[in-house]
Amino acid sequence: MKTNSIKILALIAFISMFQLACSIHESEADFYNYTPEDGEIWEGKDVGSSVEYAVEAPPFTDGIYPCNDCHSEIEPNPERRELVDMHDDITAIYDHDSENRWCLACHDLENRDYLRLANGELLDFNESYRLCGQCHGDKLRDWKVGVHGKRKGMWNGEKDYLLCVHCHSPHSPKFEALTPEPPPVMHIKHEETEQTN
């Protein structure tokens, strides 16, 4: 009798565990197959906007912006080429996957006052982090939570973000070497240590 009841109990436990496992599986499947219903706006979790992150103004070279001051009078030329006249300073330093990319990979052909995402969306310069995030998604993710890059302000309140381009030149993104501040003073001078040795 005793062994029978134990067997029955074990069977019930097994069945309930199986059901539980199935239900978890189903809910996971629901999650991955989720499609927005009609009328529902699907906003991906990662859609950023300038409202969301208080950023400092982009670091333009003096007098370079708005670009249309000059470009409105220039016929747009979509052909890939090396710039030799205006913007040759950028050609000189350009080192950002330069084998595969050039100006129009990020700048819009028709309206130079905007950047252009891969999906064709025009982007203001103060939202440029979204453009960078197209390739550097892991960095964008860390930047949003304040782990990549520098922020100022309150640890428990409002924070000021810097754009990617404040620290990394978009045309040559490697972080530039810095001149170090002076080392701490030596308490024991070298000559003295040599003497005592």
Binding site: G146, H148, K150, K152, M154, W155, N156, G157, C167
Partner: peptide, 20 residues
């Protein structure tokens, strides 16, 4: 007062992080 430490705000590499 809710502010970040001075070393956090000066770091040019953004290497210093602080919080609760």
């Amino acid at each position: 007062e809710g502010r970040y430490p001075a070393c956090v705000e000066i770091c040019p590499a953004g290497a210093r992080k602080f919080g609760n």
